[in-house]
């Protein structure tokens, strides 16, 4: 099970990093979302994978570690706020300039974006 979760984190990171290195804004947004999933699962796994011991005080004698869960809950909320912000930022940027590349125009424009206009 550990191997499965670790490979899932690795896979999400790979796809996220690759998408962030693209030139258009939408792949970058999706890449950031995937990276934040990867980070959340990574932080969560720092509390180890425990099946069927939710940290809700009851008659049970053992619980999973609640602290990483609390941190990840905060992380999910913050990354949601961040995603919403960059989606709107990308949208407004495109509507203002009719250009959805992430690089500054004229700085290091790749040839294919020139041909795209």
């Amino acid at each position: 099970m550990e191997l499965l979760v670790a490979s899932a984190v690795g896979m999400m990171t790979t796809v996220g990093v690759y998408l962030i290195l693209q030139q258009r804004t939408f792949p970058i947004i999706v890449g950031l979302t995937l990276l934040s999933y990867a980070v959340n699962v990574f932080l969560f796994s720092a509390g180890r994978l425990v099946v069927d011991r939710p940290p809700i005080i009851s008659d049970a004698d053992a619980y999973t570690d609640p602290l990483p869960q609390a941190l990840v809950l905060t992380a999910i909320v913050i990354s949601f706020g961040m995603t919403a912000l960059i989606v709107v930022l990308a949208l407004r940027g495109f509507l203002e300039t009719e250009n959805d590349t992430a690089d500054l125009p004229g700085e290091d424009l790749a040839p294919e974006t020139e041909a795209d206009k």
């Binding site: 979760v5 670790a6 984190v9 990171t13 990574f42 796994s45």
Partner: peptide, 13 residues
């Protein structure tokens, strides 16, 4: 990067 992070996660787990 993905391989590194995956290995790190596995090591921690």
């Amino acid at each position: 990067v993905g391989l590194g992070v995956g290995a790190l996660t596995y090591a921690i787990l």
